[in-house]
Design a binder for these strands. Sequence first.
DNA 1: TGTCTATCATAACCCTGATTACTATAATCG
DNA 2: CGATTATAGTAATCAGGGTTATGATAGACA
Lengths: 170, 170
Amino acid sequence: MKDDPHPISSLGFLLADASRLMRRRFDQKSRDIEMTSAQMRIIARLCRNEGTSQAALAALVEVEPMTLCRHIDRMESAGLVVREQDPHDRRARMLFTTAKARQLIEPLRQRADAIFEEAQAGLSPEARRQLLESLAHIVRNLSESEASDPESAAEATSPRSRHETEEASA
Amino acid sequence: MKDDPHPISSLGFLLADASRLMRRRFDQKSRDIEMTSAQMRIIARLCRNEGTSQAALAALVEVEPMTLCRHIDRMESAGLVVREQDPHDRRARMLFTTAKARQLIEPLRQRADAIFEEAQAGLSPEARRQLLESLAHIVRNLSESEASDPESAAEATSPRSRHETEEASA
DNA sequence: TGTCTATCATAACCCTGATTACTATAATCG
DNA sequence: CGATTATAGTAATCAGGGTTATGATAGACA
């Protein structure tokens, strides 16, 4: 346990474990509310940006457009959001939260806070502050390096634009 | 940004984001290696506990037995693990890593370390140490509270055992 | 010995996230 | 104007995680 023979306590695993356990706990504690944690994140963003397109919202919550698309599918049939045609762009849909969705945010946030407290029990206020700060730092770093170095898939296709590569193979 | 009007920077979201971004980055950077991060976690545990049962291993990596079961399915057909009948218990299977799997650990770990460095760039050694410690603390807290309070689904069915409830409704 | 219960593995099904590929529509440029 | 390129949304498919349910087998105990 001291010299850590296993890689289990590396940053990556700890992060994944903490995140998974947190989500699991949250889902357990809020089964009575008809909104999942991922949906809550989306609603939280959307209700501060009513009317944005799916692509824009996907960027805001930092998931792939396809991922968001299915979320919206489910959330729409659950009555949490509505899609409306953008009058200026026939490709785009504008998204809006429903009152039902907005009403669920507060109770969910309370459940969440209780679990955060549970999780951080025994950590000093200073440690908690530092933790949030470090996590935010990491998120920033990763967002940036992903933006600047979008793929770099090991053996790296040369920096030509993607469609040129496609043409080559087509 | 200061008084945080959005719940986006709460512990839960930060943790989820950091974890997701990290995993995404890792998967991007190691597509050339035939093992995913989740599989790596499992192999890392298993190669220190060769021959354990699926249930035991599931407990070690803290996922549900069913989740692990599917991992083993895929990993078995990928030639990363083998299942063998436990001679003492005909229900159980004993798990073993293959040489192929063990050989992949080091390269993967190197990729991972590079990403950890990327993610933590700009954090002091002390901040990094604190971060790991706080995360480990959180993982411990959540594991424990889950163990002591396995369900507690909000309005809580009374503490009777689950099957009694089933009988009542059946 | 024979039920009753707990445990192992796993099937079936839902949610989250990503990649790839395709359609429809905008936008841009020759 | 017309072809090319870029963008919005989404279907299909794969990995990961979870819950519920089921068939076998162990174990406990009357």
